[in-house]
């Protein structure tokens, strides 16, 4: 074939062109380290990691869903409900904390399964099914907690602390969940089926993939990841709050999309999502360091989301 443009570039350049989000993150980090002397300190970077953790974990779960061409608006609410469930069963109900953790994860998975059932069997659009769950899960969290925060069991709150002197456990959990997400997406049957379903559901069905069953697993995973995110968030605050993580689903979706996934399905990677979540966290952190008002921060972040996807879209259009 004459003149394959991508092939002629150096491998590193080609990789960056394919992973635009990484390039954007590098630019952002360089710019911020020039603008603020505090930015590159170890304490601050770990702080960024902690700030990114909850969004990233939610976003890994959302990546599964978005790869199948769906959307999960309920993850923020499900995170809160799972955390409240954990705190309530461990304190008010007096159950041993490991059991409470399992129950909490199960609640997350259940929420996901309900979403998937409405989508796969009830034929509801994912947007509607998960919008309903957004309300239901948040409402249940308020009902269980009667609207007030519940203290987390101490053994679990340790998750919000550090391992050794420096290493924040939320960062470790984020990395572990990221690796799990990457392995699921790349190496497992369910992961590969997600890409096929998102790319062309009918072709997947006609190739023998049981689409309904795979959607159950997909949304169940999203719910499980949301539960983990909720537990991490509550651990950091040492208490589960019914209003926690409100609106986080939008950050999660933003992270996935900045990371290069397509909302129409079939595209998306765990690494991209990780970078997307880091970009959001770095941006917030940097804007704080630069004393940009919280009001303007929202404007900037909104603009960055639009810009990231715009650049990606233009790049793709140029290729074909």
């Amino acid at each position: 074939m004459p003149g394959n443009v991508l092939a002629r570039r150096s491998p590193a350049a080609a990789w960056l062109a394919e992973n635009g989000a990484v390039a954007a993150l590098v630019v952002l980090v360089v710019a911020l380290s020039l603008l603020s002397s505090d930015f590159l300190s170890l304490t601050n970077l770990l702080n960024v990691g902690v700030q990114a953790a909850v969004t990233a974990i939610l976003a890994f779960g959302s990546t599964f869903v978005i790869v199948t061409g769906g959307i999960d608006l309920s993850v923020g609410s499900v995170a809160a409900l799972s955390a409240i469930t954990l705190a309530w069963t461990a304190t008010d109900a007096g159950v041993a904390w490991p059991v409470a953790v399992v129950v909490s994860l199960a609640v997350g998975v259940m929420a996901g399964l309900v979403n998937a059932s409405l989508i796969a069997y009830g034929k509801l659009p994912p947007f509607i099914a998960t919008l309903a769950m957004l309300g239901i899960a948040r409402g249940l969290a308020l009902v269980i907690s009667q609207g007030s925060p519940i203290a987390m069991p101490e053994a679990v709150s340790a998750l919000g602390g550090n391992l050794g002197r420096y290493l924040p456990i939320p960062v470790i959990v984020m990395v572990v969940m990221g690796v799990i997400a990457a392995v699921i997406l790349n190496r497992t049957y369910t992961g590969r089926a997600m890409y096929a379903i998102g790319g062309n559901e009918e072709a997947a069905r006609l190739s023998g993939i049981k689409v309904d069953r795979q959607l159950l697993i997909t949304y169940g995973l999203s719910g499980a990841f949301a539960a983990v995110a909720g537990i991490v968030l509550a651990s950091r605050l040492a208490s589960a709050q019914p209003q926690a993580a409100a609106g986080y689903e939008l950050d999660a979706i933003a992270a996935v999309v900045i990371g290069g996934a397509s909302l129409s399905g079939g595209k998306g990677k765990a690494l991209g999502t990780f970078v997307g979540a880091l970009i959001l966290a770095v941006l917030r952190n940097g804007l704080n360091l630069l004393s940009v008002s919280a009001f303007w921060q929202q404007v900037v972040i909104g603009a960055v989301i639009a810009l990231a996807v715009l650049v990606d879209t233009l790049r793709r259009r140029g290729t074909y």
């Binding site: 890409y195 062309n200 072709a203 997947a204 006609l206 397509s262 595209k267």
Partner: peptide, 13 residues
């Protein structure tokens, strides 16, 4: 294209 192929995926996939 509508039923046979996953257009977002590669040939091997």
């Amino acid at each position: 294209k509508g039923q046979g192929l996953v257009l977002t995926a590669d040939i091997g996939e």
